[in-house]
Design a protein around this nucleic acid. Structure first.
Lengths: 146, 146
DNA sequence: TTTAGTGCAAAGGCTTTGCAGATGT
DNA sequence: ACATCTGCAAAGCCTTTGCACTAAA
């Protein structure tokens, strides 16, 4: 199976876009990041390695990576542009800890089918959906009790 | 049953806050607005009536109305602060048309209970949740076919 | 009167854009 | 070589804040 890097290069070629050092670094940094990085997270990760890059480039490149299908935007209700890995990654929902920010990914085919049913009942053609539960993760709940 | 206006006035009194012309106008405008207005929507609605108000006041007042429990913030994934009526209004989810912006509110107790179950399975204590399905409403789907 | 609220404009925070210089092919 | 990309700084947007003035109670 093709690596994300290969897919990305192919995508760039197809679109007549160049494979630049920066684009490869942004993809690499994004793939190494746990959870749901912001543009700033990725920018800082690259900078920490003393690699020179501009913030605008990271913004632009993340858009390209999203267009390529390797990443998708996630909204964690903090007003920041966040991303998640999408390649070979099944559709899922998020449990977001409002204390520590930890995000747990969950899947539920039963919820999926109920969503489809709801849409059908309202003559609505679904394209994408998002479900998030905000609350406290186990660690933060325990910490709060003590 | 108490009107929202009464609730709001009581809330202000309780908190030692004043009942100003602006606060009453913002509440009135918010309650008259269909769907999920932004601060700008409410500001414009008031301005159209030739009532003088500052944008900052609308921002501040909507925060107060949210604190009072009469309104809640909704995130429709467009980066704007949007609100919805919460008083005597049951928990629901949204079908958002990506063409015309129309929002259909739906409820599903089955989804609610699946959400609770998911949280329990992950040792997560839920506080609030949101589910949105983005797609095309009936009108926009038909319009697109023609 | 006295304390809280308002309006304006300035400041903030994140994101996008314009453009000259740098770079991939 | 030549078109695309990058970096910087400026501009854009929405939202929040500081402060002198105004208005509730």
């Amino acid at each position: 199976m093709k690596s994300a890097e290969t897919i990305f290069r192919q995508y760039l070629k197809e679109k007549g876009m160049l494979v630049s050092r920066q684009r490869e670094q942004v993809l690499a940094a994004f793939m190494k990041t746990r959870n749901h990085p912001t543009v700033g997270d990725i920018y800082n990760a690259i900078r920490k390695k003393n690699l020179k890059i501009g913030l605008a480039t990271v913004y632009r490149t993340m858009s390209v990576i999203c267009d390529s299908g390797l990443a998708g935007e996630v909204d964690l209700a903090d007003g920041l542009r966040r991303f998640e890995y999408k390649y070979r990654h099944q559709h899922h929902h998020h449990l977001v800890c409002i204390k520590c920010g930890r995000v747990i990914e969950v899947t539920s085919s039963r919820i999926e089918s109920l969503q489809k049913k709801l849409a059908r009942q309202h003559n609505f053609t679904p394209a994408r959906d998002t479900m998030k539960i905000f609350g406290l993760c186990r660690k933060c709940r325990n910490r709060q009790q003590s």
